[in-house]
């Protein structure tokens, strides 16, 4: 008989939003930001190891991080955390039967908060 078409390599299609609705955007964003933040977490822990190597190493590291490229990267992390965290609230509460029928409105509302917060952080970071 015919084979099941599912295979692990189909994971590429997780991230294909064509012909999909809003919920898929939420799923895709949550997955990408979740994985991105996980990579960042471990990089961050490694970088903080500079603290153990004393004042010169750490302050040198901070000077490096202050250039615009690193600031932009840092903003990306803040944006990812906001999107992922706020979307996480949507997943959490709908999973317990709260606002299940209103997940789209919830998503749009939470993402509006995320965008406002991202813009706020961007202005703050680049004008200080």
């Amino acid at each position: 008989m015919a084979e099941h078409p599912q295979k692990p390599a189909n994971l590429i299609k997780w991230f294909d939003p064509r012909n999909k609705s809003l919920g898929s955007w939420a799923f895709i964003l949550n997955r990408i930001t979740g994985l991105g933040l996980t990579v960042y977490l471990f990089l961050h822990l490694i970088m903080l190891g500079q603290l153990a190597r004393g004042p010169e190493a750490y302050d040198g590291f901070i000077a490096l991080v202050k250039n615009p490229i690193f600031l932009a990267g840092e903003l990306l992390v803040i944006a990812a955390a906001l999107i992922h965290g706020l979307n996480g609230i949507r997943i959490g509460i709908t999973s317990f039967g709260i606002a299940g029928g209103k997940q789209k409105q919830l998503f749009i509302g939470l993402m509006t908060v995320a965008v406002i917060a991202i813009v706020y952080f961007a202005i703050r970071m680049f004008t200080h």
Partner: peptide, 9 residues
Amino acid sequence: KILTGFLVI
């Protein structure tokens, strides 16, 4: 997973 996510916030 959900609980730790919430506590992280």
